[in-house]
């Protein structure tokens, strides 16, 4: 009915958060350079980029889902845009959003968290490897 609107709502929030995190990271980078501090290249993926992965999954995934809703006639190109609102099935629609919609957003976020966890572990391992090689030499 309108389950894809929940991931869209999450995508709006995460996009704003990602922009804020990115500007904070850029400020930190400028401060470090301004202080003439020696920056050690760690090769770690910035958190704003990791948030970008979640944004892409949420925005693009819900875009395809919106197309499916359009295909099934659940979304219409004219106001009020949702067939459920037009036919007075608002409570049913809200129920589906609260169950399927919330679960969709949660599962996408959970998968993203898993990817971020794996990437973080891999980066830590890669950071440690040169140190171990130096110790062994």
């Amino acid at each position: 009915m309108a389950c894809f609107t929940v991931p869209v709502a999450e995508a709006i929030v995460t996009t704003i958060v990602a922009k804020a995190v990115k500007s904070k990271e850029e400020k930190q980078h400028i401060n470090l350079n301004g202080a003439n501090t020696e920056i050690k290249e760690s090769g770690k993926t910035p958190f704003s980029k990791k948030l970008g992965w979640l944004n892409k999954m949420l925005w693009l995934g819900s875009f395809l889902l919106a197309f499916e809703h359009l295909w099934h006639g659940e979304v219409i190109p004219t106001f009020p845009f949702l067939t459920a609102v037009k036919t007075g099935e608002v409570s049913e629609m809200l129920g589906e959003m609260a169950t399927a919609g919330v679960m969709m957003a949660m599962l996408v976020t959970l998968v993203w968290a898993g990817i971020v966890a794996v990437v973080t572990v891999m980066e830590k391992k890669a950071d440690k490897e040169p140190e171990i090689a130096e110790e062994n030499a």
Binding site: L60, S62, F63, L64, V111
Partner: peptide, 8 residues
């Protein structure tokens, strides 16, 4: 895009 949609 495809993984996001697949999960949903």
């Amino acid at each position: 895009m495809f993984w996001g949609a697949s999960i949903m």
